[in-house]
């Protein structure tokens, strides 16, 4: 796979609606991003066995893996949970990384699990304050993740519908400091940046200009929808036009970008169909081509 923006690829985040699409349109994809948690049931910390394969869907994944590189996008680590750092989960991620020979693994810079045994799961990526103490907590965890996984470990900037008062750092400062001190890369979710910029009233390009874009290894692009007077990261249908604009803005500046991934919720497949997904991939490819010229 690609090692610089000049060779950066285009992929899609796999969901069940894409099983036939991936088989029929392999030539339009450079890689497939996969949420491995979709293929197992997690019985919780300390359970034996902790993880149980649950889905016949892995057959489709295995077929896709014969033709496309796979990268993992975990949703279950909850790396920002204060109580527990889940090495069992990381080991499971590593088993899957090895199974599909993945070149990188990403996770969310958030928490969803609470309680000393992580017995409650909010099922939503909850934000943490941009404080130095959070960086101090995360640094050894990220170093452990990098060591266990043995491949680049990327963390995704979060979407948040509220803000914490009195934070030590701005979000770009926090992401820069975290990536620098822990040696990780960033998965820059441009739709999350756009969503936050709309809901909290800041300039997305100014945010991106403050970010150390050399740390960005992968970019996510997506669409959203309105709810209760907010714009939400619902992954509805096609990529929002403003997000394409942000991609064109950052792509030439991301020297180590390896992939641009389109993500959508499977329930919105009828809005897209194969033609719609292909159009998103083509648009991403065009933005990368323009970035090479720029």
């Amino acid at each position: 796979m690609a090692s610089s923006v000049a060779e950066c690829g285009v992929g899609v985040l796999f969901n069940p609606a894409l099983a036939d699409f991936v088989a029929d349109h392999t030539q339009h994809l450079d890689y497939l991003s996969v949420i491995p948690d979709r293929f197992w049931r997690d019985h919780g910390l300390g359970a034996d066995p902790r993880f149980e394969d649950t889905s016949a869907g892995e057959a489709a994944l295995a077929r896709a893996a014969q033709r496309l590189p796979i990268v993992l996008h975990g949703i279950g680590l909850s790396i920002c949970s204060a109580d527990v750092f889940d090495r069992e989960y990381l080991s499971q991620l590593e088993r899957w990384r090895a199974r599909y020979d993945c070149q990188w693994v990403s996770e969310h810079l958030s928490f969803s699990r609470i309680g000393a045994g992580h017995e409650t799961n909010a099922g939503i990526a909850l934000p943490v304050p941009f404080d130095r103490s959070i960086i101090d907590m995360l640094r050894p965890r990220i170093e452990a993740a990098r060591s266990i996984l043995g491949c680049p470990f990327l963390l995704e900037n979060n979407v948040s519908y509220f803000t914490f008062p009195g934070e030590d750092l701005t979000e770009p400062q926090f992401l820069n400091e975290l990536a620098r001190s822990a040696g990780c890369s960033l998965l820059l979710d441009l739709h999350n940046v756009y969503t936050n910029s709309r809901n909290h009233g800041f300039d997305a390009k100014a945010f991106l200009s403050e970010l150390d874009l050399a740390r960005v290894g992968e970019i996510h692009v997506a669409g959203g929808s309105e709810m209760m007077g907010f714009y939400t990261d619902s992954h509805t249908g096609a990529v929002h036009e403003a997000v394409w604009e942000l991609l064109s803005f950052v792509a030439p500046r991301c020297a180590n970008l390896r992939g641009v991934t389109f993500e959508f919720h499977e329930s919105t497949w009828p809005m897209l169909r194969a033609e719609g997904v292909l159009a998103q991939l083509e648009r991403a490819r065009s933005a990368l081509a323009a970035a090479r010229v720029a």
Binding site: F162, T163, G166
Partner: peptide, 27 residues
């Protein structure tokens, strides 16, 4: 005290309702 203060501030933001609604919808 800071954590308490932040949680009280968060719950007064309209975005917290969005958060709760999204979590309930997902659930």
């Amino acid at each position: 005290a800071m954590e308490q203060e932040r949680l009280v501030a968060v719950v007064h933001q309209r975005g917290m309702s969005v958060n709760c609604t999204l979590a309930r919808a997902n659930r």
